[in-house]
């Protein structure tokens, strides 16, 4: 109930701050970008449209998650709006979770609308969509759950600018964790290899949620994989959120 109240308020704040204008940019980028590139391609208009849709969802979603997420708690502390809230009979973690879920609701709305726009656009162009496109869109959203959780954690710890830089680096790097496993064969059996393996499992692996290539080329992805990736995202977000709650619990405001 209290979590819902905070979440609802966070959602309303973001909406009244016109964060959803990002949808407009999404539409412009997708339509202009895919149109401009589509006409010189070899029978690839629809693939390019799908690529643009999914990549724009990932990028714009991440932008919302990073910029709104990293200032989520910090802004409340900085503007002292928090004083009257924390002094209410509620746990601090309820506040953190409320903020998180408020932003997640916003992202759900944003990505849901983007998916709907993409679907409509692709249908208008005469294409058809397979299940894998929606799997890719869902995993895109799940990726943003992890990114948002990380942003919330950092917003409890640092200033929004530093937080945004860190989350952005993690976003880029999170897609590249595969390099830790793709070591050249001369590392086989060495300590370094095991060390990198440990790191591989510690850092968030955002490439798990990247089905763009499969979605655009209609390569089916098993439901088992989707389920593993969803479970992974949920568990990792939970880790980050618990850490965010702990960090916020002991904070002097």
């Amino acid at each position: 109930m209290r979590v819902l109240a905070v979440a609802g308020n966070t959602f309303r704040e973001a909406v009244r701050d016109k964060v959803l204008y990002v949808l407009l940019f999404f539409a412009i980028i997708v339509i202009l970008g895919s149109r401009a590139l589509g006409w010189i391609s070899v029978g690839q208009d629809l693939k390019i449209v799908k690529d643009f849709c999914l990549a724009s969802m990932s990028v714009f979603g991440a932008l919302i998650a990073i910029f709104v997420g990293t200032s989520l708690l910090y802004k409340e502390i900085d503007k002292k709006t928090l004083y009257t809230i924390i002094s209410q009979p509620m746990h601090r973690y309820e506040f953190v979770l409320g903020k998180y879920f408020g932003l997640v609701a916003l992202l759900a709305l944003a990505l849901g609308s983007m998916s709907a726009l993409s679907t409509a656009y692709i249908f208008v162009l005469g294409g058809k969509l397979n299940l894998v496109f929606f799997q890719a869109a869902l995993l895109n959203f799940w990726k943003l759950l992890v990114v948002t959780a990380l942003a919330v954690l950092l917003s409890a710890l640092t200033s929004p600018i530093l937080g945004a830089i860190i989350v952005f680096c993690c976003f880029v790097f999170g897609h590249a964790t595969g390099v830790f496993l793709d070591l050249p064969p001369q590392f086989n059996g060495t300590f370094t290899k095991h060390f990198f393996e440990v790191i591989y499992y510690c850092v968030p692996n955002l490439d798990n949620f990247n089905l763009h290539s499969e979605a655009a080329n209609d390569i089916p992805v098993s439901l088992a994989y989707t389920a593993w990736a969803l479970a992974y995202g949920t568990a990792y977000s939970a880790v980050l959120l618990i850490m965010a709650c702990l960090a916020f619990e002991g904070k002097d405001l």
């Binding site: 390019i48 643009f52 880029v172 897609h175 590249a176 955002l206 990247n210 763009h212």
Partner: peptide
């Protein structure tokens, strides 16, 4: 790895 999930768009271009 360095494309931050934009690999397909870069491939298109």
């Amino acid at each position: 790895h360095a494309t931050a999930g934009l690999n397909t768009v870069i491939a298109d271009i």
